Simulated scan of single mutants.
Amino acid sequence: MKPALAQAYDRLMDRAGTTALLAALADTGPGRTLPITDLLQAVSALGGPSRLGPLRDQLMALQPLLLRMDPGTDEEQVGFRHPEIAARARARRSDAGVTTGNDPHYAVADLWLLLDGEAEAGTEMREHLEECASCLETFAGLERLKLKVARCAGGEHAPPELRTRIVASVRQTVESAAGPTLPTSARRSSPGPP
């Protein structure tokens, strides 16, 4: 990304009060959108606006970054316009909200890292969650958000039967090209003459 473009994105993303909105959209991925009602719930859980009016005000402030379909309606869908914007927001999410001083709670960004399996102090954080209702509630909200995003943004999984058919087809193609192979149980475990 060109430095000038990165700076322009950062200026827009630095607007006051938009951290929760950007964090909620960060996991949708490029070209994917969230229904406005799900976005409102996610943003609210992250400490952002809990009403549509203020949320839509933030959407307008970030308009150059966002893709909005059916804006202003109950069917509105919101996402990032470009993969570079989504990537920039994800990178910034991990830098945002770091706790300092005597604050015993984990920042939302740290909880995202734990949820994504990327936290360096995962064991310590999980122990804290067992003892801290506030952090556990925030973490649970992030889990619900991630599940909603996966569901809304194409998180469907292929049925197991399809996987079985694909593996069988690949195996058949390989065997017809290279000749049949011995089953694992018939292979010799040590090298040497037959």
Rank of each mutant, 00 (worst) to 15 (best):
K2F: 12
K2L: 14
P3N: 06
L5F: 11
A6N: 07
Q7N: 07
D10F: 07
L12W: 03
M13V: 08
M13L: 14
D14S: 13
R15L: 14
R15N: 07
T18Q: 01
T19G: 05
T19N: 03
T19W: 04
A20E: 02
A26P: 02
D27H: 06
G29N: 04
G31F: 04
R32L: 02
L34G: 01
L34M: 07
I36A: 03
T37C: 05
T37W: 10
L40C: 04
Q41Y: 06
A42G: 04
V43E: 01
A45W: 04
L46K: 02
R56N: 03
L59H: 02
L59C: 05
L65S: 01
L66H: 01
L66G: 02
M69T: 10
P71S: 10
G72W: 00
D74N: 09
E76H: 01
Q77W: 06
Q77E: 09
V78C: 00
V78E: 01
V78T: 01
G79R: 00
R81C: 02
A86W: 01
A87N: 04
R92C: 04
R92Y: 06
S94V: 15
A96E: 09
G97W: 04
V98E: 12
T100V: 15
P104F: 06
H105I: 12
Y106F: 13
A107R: 02
A107N: 03
A107D: 09
A107F: 06
W112Y: 14
L113S: 09
L113W: 02
D116Q: 12
E118H: 09
A121V: 14
G122H: 11
T123C: 11
T123P: 01
E124L: 13
R126C: 10
H128G: 04
L129C: 03
L129Q: 03
E131H: 13
C132N: 03
A133I: 15
E137L: 14
L142M: 10
K148N: 08
R151Y: 09
R151T: 13
G155I: 12
E156N: 06
H157G: 05
P159S: 11
R163E: 13
T164V: 14
V167T: 14
V167G: 03
S169F: 08
S169G: 13
T173I: 13
A178V: 14
G179H: 05
T181G: 07
T181L: 14
T181R: 13
R188L: 15
R188V: 15
S189D: 11
S190G: 06
P191V: 13
G192Y: 06
P193Y: 13
P193I: 15
P194R: 10
P194V: 14
